[in-house]
């Protein structure tokens, strides 16, 4: 275990924030303290090595060409999709107008003299045209829909092919899972329904543009939140399990003090994961937190030693011994440290 302030100084060394004086102090300490000497030397060597690591690496030409080509292809598919949806709704509109036009021109109607008879014919023709147009529009809509779907699916298949069967085990419904993966959730393209009422072209155009706007861009700020939420859902599953365990008695209890209880809890969570356990944080009155950690008894000793290092008050209690085999439940109490 190295001396108390040395760890902080080693971090500042890595961050390039050590003054010349502090550096000398560190080197001097290394000469006096054999335990720290190794770590100090390792830190200097690590720093020198990292300075030679490159933050940018040449991408092989074939790989460059591949992603650029994939993007161009995706752009093409996007344009096709847009156009096909437009065509679909515009076609429906055009057909409707044609149907209405036919009825009004009366080209289907025999020549009549009486106005009322003409009117009757027009009305009949209009009804017939409407009926036809509904059918035709529905067909056109379905066709356009189908074409768009195929183009979209082809796109989605390219992107999702490798991962479709190997999606990470996230317990969410299909759509959030797809979102968590960063993919568009495959969904059918919504078309304006053929209602049987004539759609003016302007309205159809408006509908087409509305549909484009509707398609949510993935990984907007909201999508990031959704992604986080999906992972939290998975974590919630773990938490439910831990809460159930909390009904049992912990095998032992250990308290530490921390300047920031929130950060300490997050770090305990990380540690629990490292030791292949799980942690459930519950906050308590007065700013403290109880953290229930479930892990293997064999790892508990090392885990508690690591937790002891998080104590900010300078004099943590000796962590308790954990005996037994199999999984144990440990209760950690994190209290806010007194200010200095």
């Amino acid at each position: 275990m190295i001396c108390k302030d040395v760890s902080g100084m080693l971090d500042r060394l890595m961050d390039g924030e050590l003054t010349a004086d502090e550096r000398r102090e560190l080197e001097a300490h290394g000469r006096e303290c054999p335990e720290c000497a190794e770590e100090i030397r390792a830190a200097f060597e690590m720093k020198a090595l990292f300075e030679e690591a490159l933050p940018e690496v040449d991408v092989p030409l074939a790989v460059q060409a591949k992603w650029r080509g994939a993007v161009r292809e995706a752009a093409k598919q996007d344009r096709k999709k847009k156009w096909t949806r437009w065509i679909g709704s515009a076609a429906a509109a055009v057909v409707v107008l044609a149907g209405v036009g036919l009825a009004l021109n009366g080209s289907l109607a025999p020549k009549q003299n009486s106005t009322s008879e003409k009117l009757a014919v027009v009305q009949e023709a209009a009804v017939a045209a409407e009926a036809n147009e509904v059918e035709y529009a529905a067909e056109a809509v379905n066709e356009a829909d189908a074409v768009a779907e195929v183009a979209y699916e082809a796109n989605a298949v390219d992107f999702a092919a490798e991962t479709a069967d190997e999606a990470p085990v996230i317990e969410t419904d299909g759509e959030s899972e797809a979102l968590a993966m960063g993919y568009d959730a495959p969904k059918s393209v919504a078309m304006p329904e053929a209602t049987g009422e004539p759609l003016p072209v302007a309205e159809a155009a408006g509908a087409a543009m509305e549909m484009e706007a509707e398609e949510p861009a993935m990984e907007t700020e909201e999508a990031f939140e959704e992604e986080d939420a999906a992972f939290e859902d998975a974590a919630a599953g773990d938490q439910a399990m831990c809460a159930a365990l909390a009904q049992q008695s912990p095998a032992c209890e250990y308290a530490i003090q921390a300047m920031s209880v929130e950060v300490a809890c997050e770090v305990i969570g990380d540690l629990a994961e490292e030791f292949e356990g799980s942690a459930d944080v519950q906050s308590v009155e007065g700013g403290s937190a109880n953290v229930y950690v479930e892990l293997d008894a064999a790892s508990a000793g090392e885990f508690l030693a690591a937790v002891a290092k998080l104590d900010d008050a300078g004099n943590p209690a000796e962590p308790p011994r954990v005996s037994g085999e199999g999984t144990v439940l440990v209760l950690l109490v994190v209290e806010p440290a007194e200010g200095e």
Binding site: A70, G182, E219
Partner: peptide
Amino acid sequence: LQEAMLRVWRAISGF
């Protein structure tokens, strides 16, 4: 890298 590029493409209109 390939996958990341495509994700960025799909998301960029939302940036």
